[in-house]
Each structure stands twice: as structure tokens, then as C-alpha cells.
Nucleic acid binder design. Structure first.
Lengths: 173, 173
DNA sequence: TTTGACGGCTAACGACGTTAGCCCTAGGTT
DNA sequence: AACCTAGGGCTAACGTCGTTAGCCGTCAAA
């Protein structure tokens, strides 16, 4: 289950993650990644077929982390859409670059562990009582809020807590 | 007002736009752009300081187009949140690459025509009766729906019309 | 007539992802 | 003990990218 990757490959992914999280996507370079591991860039190809495969592994980590955050929120406050919303926002803002890597491209579904995508969506589906339309519109709202905030699209003085409350209230009724 | 750019610069932006819209962001290369214009890449620097300046001009076009689409929707169905939602979605899906270029990065506000950002937001603000929290949560919902759809994040068989209806209904009440 | 802005050009640089091909080391096999 | 093999490094290099430096032709205004 966790042995999708060799130990060395996991070290590479870990280094890639800190590189991405600390310095953003432009800094996630194969040469910089190799540097951080004390090796040269071409050596990375002994462990991954290309850069995209490394990024896919980061998406797996991001998706897993998001799923765990959602599950924890559900355990804390079962049935609470507000709690889920708070956890979603908190996770995204704690890992903005990882969050964007995960969402701003088509999902590499063929390379994902089976069931991971569903697992991440499950808590929201449960809170929405299986109503897919509601779950999707809530997800869209939460993703929109988070990604617009990350990219600084709201006015600097905007009261985002109020906007979240308003949206969650409207969708949760 | 429209003379922000020299005629030649406007030709360059037009070529950049078709390149982006037809072939996506990876194809928007200074060499490819120059090729399409029958010149060499370094000549572009006689008209723009760097690639980002060209992209900023595309953002201006995208934002202007979005503002026009919102204004047209408002003129068609004054006060209708549903009409605005339909227009927003239609514009984004008609120009997905342009839409992503416009939204998936910090706005280059310093390089934008004065008032453009506000103009694009004005119709929604009016429909929301000046309630900023509502307007922001609606924008987040609409942006989330559009961008998740563009990136193929919803299941292939998802009924997105139903999700839109659900979200607009909840936020518009 | 000369000047200068305008708008092309070639050559080249450094960084990027990537490929080809070499080499050393460790462990297991014969 | 001798050998083989897989793992995991390395250098050199290629093509593409954005970008810079420096040159040259054209044409209107002084």
C-alpha cells in the first residue's frame, strides 16, 4: 500500500515537496531537486521516468493529506458542513503550492492509488447526505474561495471569513 | 483609452491570443509567436519588455471580455443571478485558456487599465444589492465550478447543470 | 543632407528537461 | 574465489526556452 515507491524514491519526493512548499513551483527544478539531495539531475531518472512522475507523487501526497484533514474534521464534528469548510480552507492555506499543484491541472487518475480520489471526496458526500449536486456546488465554492484567496484575487481588505460564513450558510441550509 | 499599445504591439497581442486559445499555454512561446508574425523572437522585445508583458495584455483582453459578457447578461435579464451565472460559465468555457491565464495567478494590477477590475465585478455587485459577502461567495462558487470543469476534475458523467442550478439557487435566495 | 526613431536581424548565454553512455559498488551465484 | 548483475551514481551533450547585445536598413523630420 505504501510501498508504491522505493525508499530512495520516497526521499526524492520528500525533497521535492519541501522545495515546492518553501519556494513555489518555479523552484521545483530537476537540477535544484538533485542539488538538495547531493546528486546530479540525470541521476533522478534512475528513480522516475520524468518530472511529471515526481509531480504526480506530490499530487498523491496532497490528495492523501486533504483526505486525512477532511476525515479528521468529520470525526471532530460529525455532520458539520462548517467544520468541513474550516478544515478544507485550513489545509489549502497551510500548503498553498501543493494545493495548486493538486488542483490546477487534470488529475493523473491513471497513476493514482485506487480509491484515493473517492476517499478524499467521501466526507463531503456523507455530510451532504449523498446529494451529489449539493456536494459539487459546495466543493466548487470552497475551491473557488481558497484559490482566489491564494492568488490574491480578493481585495486586500476583504472580510473572507464573512464570505465563507455566507456561502456555507447558504449551501448548508 | 484604446491606445495603450502601438498598432504593431496590438498585432502581436492578437497573434498571442490565437496561439493561446488554439493551442494552450505551453504553445505560447516567444519563438512560436514570432513565427506566426513572420519575424524572429528577439524582435518582439522592440514592442514588449518581456513575455510577461504580453501575457498581461492578454489578461487585459480576458478581463475586458468578461466584463462585456457580464454587462450584456445584465442588460438581457436585469437583476438575474441565474443569467449572470450562465454568462460567466459560457464566457469561461468559450475561452478556457484565456480564462485560466486571467485567474490562475496574481492579478498584475499595476499594469491594468484603471477601473477595469471594478468594471468586471460591477454587474455582480449590483445583482447582489451591494452585499459584498454574497458577491464574493457567488464569485467563488462560479469560479470554482468553471475551473474544476475546465480541468476535468468532476466525474465525466456529472450533471454540472444541476450543480450550477443548486448552487445559484442556494446563493440567490 | 543628415539624423534618429523604428523595427527588423544574427549570435549567443544560461537554465530548463532529457538522453546516451560510462563506472563503481554490493550481494548473490556458480 | 571468480563472476555476474542490479542499483545508483557520473559527465557530456542536445534541443528549447526566455533573454541580451549589437548590428543594419528604411524613412520622415530637421
Amino acid at each position: 500500500m505504501a510501498d508504491r515507491l522505493s525508499p530512495r524514491a520516497r526521499e526524492i519526493v520528500a525533497a521535492a515537496r519541501t522545495l515546492l512548499e518553501e519556494s513555489g513551483p518555479a523552484a521545483l527544478t530537476l537540477r535544484a531537486l538533485a542539488d538538495r539531495l547531493g546528486i546530479k539531475a540525470p541521476s533522478l531518472y534512475k528513480h522516475f521516468p520524468d518530472k511529471e512522475a515526481v509531480e504526480t507523487e506530490l499530487v498523491v501526497q496532497a490528495l492523501t493529506g486533504a483526505a486525512e484533514a477532511m476525515e479528521a474534521a468529520e470525526a471532530r464534528e460529525p455532520g458539520s458542513l462548517t467544520g468541513l469548510a474550516r478544515a478544507y480552507r485550513a489545509y489549502a492555506l497551510a500548503h498553498p503550492h501543493l494545493y495548486c499543484l493538486m488542483t490546477e491541472r487534470p488529475l493523473p487518475r491513471a497513476s493514482l492509488p485506487a480509491g484515493l480520489e473517492d476517499r478524499a471526496a467521501a466526507p463531503l458526500m456523507r455530510v451532504c447526505g449523498g446529494e451529489q449536486d449539493l456536494a459539487r456546488s459546495f466543493w466548487a465554492f470552497a475551491h473557488g474561495m481558497v484559490v482566489l484567496e491564494i492568488h490574491g484575487r480578493f481585495p486586500a481588505d476583504a472580510d473572507l471569513d464573512a464570505a465563507w460564513t455566507r456561502g456555507v450558510g447558504a449551501l448548508g441550509a
